[in-house]
Design a protein around this nucleic acid. Structure first.
Lengths: 229, 229
DNA sequence: CCGACCATGTAATATGTTACATGATTGT
DNA sequence: ACAATCATGTAACATATTACATGGTCGG
């Protein structure tokens, strides 16, 4: 039932059309949720039937109709009580990790690509998130400013801004954690290839790689400094 | 199509029944994938029809039949080529972050619970993962040992162990990153409540909270030391 | 003999993805 | 006029969740 709360939450920062929501899913909201338009339009109609949002038809140009949705008081209560509840954590599903674990066939080139893509993926995410955070920090984000302005007191407005900061900074920290992991993994891979004298990026099947030196134990991959150990 | 690859991957570390898989999803594999038995049993039959796994009926006690599935050569090729491909990242969906962002109503008690649960969730995850990693490191994990032993060379075996290390250590690092975030958030919350003189955990709607001091800017939440800034 | 666990199944529902489909507007 | 983008819709399919359903084994 998250999609509908995401939609209600988004509409709680101001009215907008289905198409606006579709685009929002590609930047802002997208960082924490995503849905195709084939899910959004029907859900908006469903929410309207249930009285959580209401819509006003608008005409663009001559004939093009679009519906601008707004959240109702009931809708507002629904998001508030949903968001105020304790967080729940869905089952972890991580294709990347599964691929890593079963990608142990000996194709070290593929492993290298894996780690490089991982790093690149999270670098992009971090950069985009930083840009987004800058926009919020610079008070240039329209919808967030709208929400801040509509809060009952100054303290409430500050709270609104602060939870955004927490969310976005947290996501940046996550991305950097992943980048750091990928760098460590690449370094380990270098050492592993060096140790076994691998040149073409594939472990030979005939055991022709140089025999293990006495430093076997030191080859375990190290993931960043662990402040808890 | 991940579920079938997870199943094939798991069967590539040794044969097992559908029920074994169901239980595996509750610990081991569960850390990176999860599925209810209503998905697993039909999928196993489907994989058998397609020749990726094969099964042998076994009788437990007098009448109870169970099917022990094994991966076929074709199935092995399927996982290998799937896992060897580059990682793909599905759209991010994070209910917890959405709840945080729209949980800015002024109910600071709810926010506190949110952060505490977050910390507790990842603490548990880290502890369980550490225990699991210890089992692997101590060479006490049956299926992983089976997989290592079945690799063609010593180097291959070391690789198998190393990617597990990378995966599990990475997950521990993730969990610790989340714990650190939650602690920072709780500290910020303390400062926020102190600043506004909040006593009952709820921001007053009438603006009766003490007016902002001259230290407003310093109230932005800080998320851990950022080594990149 | 009874409760905990082994072992498997189906059905209903909800959610998410991909493809197919249509037409308007705006700027060049 | 043409392309890019605005704007909305449906259908087919894949995947995931929850509930209902049945019966066997094993140890105390």
């Amino acid at each position: 039932m998250s999609l509908e709360h995401v939609i209600l939450g988004w509409l709680s920062t101001g009215p907008g059309s289905g198409y606006d929501l579709v685009r929002a899913m590609d930047f802002g909201v997208n960082w924490f949720w995503s849905a195709p338009h084939s899910q959004i339009y029907p859900k908006l109609r469903d929410l309207e039937e249930r009285g959580l949002v209401e819509s006003a038809p608008t005409v663009v140009g001559e004939r093009l109709e679009k519906r601008i949705y707004s959240i109702t008081e009931e809708g507002r209560r629904a998001v508030d009580s949903w968001a105020g509840g304790p967080p729940s954590y869905p089952a972890n599903r991580d294709v990347e990790r599964i691929k890593l674990i079963f990608g142990d066939t000996g194709d070290l080139k593929a492993l290298r690509v894996h780690f490089e893509r991982h790093h690149e993926h999270y670098r992009q995410r971090r950069d985009a998130m930083r840009a987004f955070l800058d926009e919020v920090d610079g008070r240039r984000h329209r919808r967030i400013e709208h929400r801040i302005a509509s809060r009952p007191t100054e303290a409430h407005g500050e709270l609104t801004l602060a939870v955004r900061e927490l969310a976005y900074r947290g996501d940046i920290a996550r991305a950097e954690n992943e980048m750091s992991w990928a760098r460590d993994a690449l370094e380990w891979l270098d050492r592993f290839e060096e140790k076994w004298g691998v040149l073409n990026g594939v472990l030979p099947l005939d055991g022709s790689a140089t025999p293990p030196s006495e430093t076997t134990v030191a080859m375990m991959p190290r993931i960043s400094p662990d402040p808890f150990h």
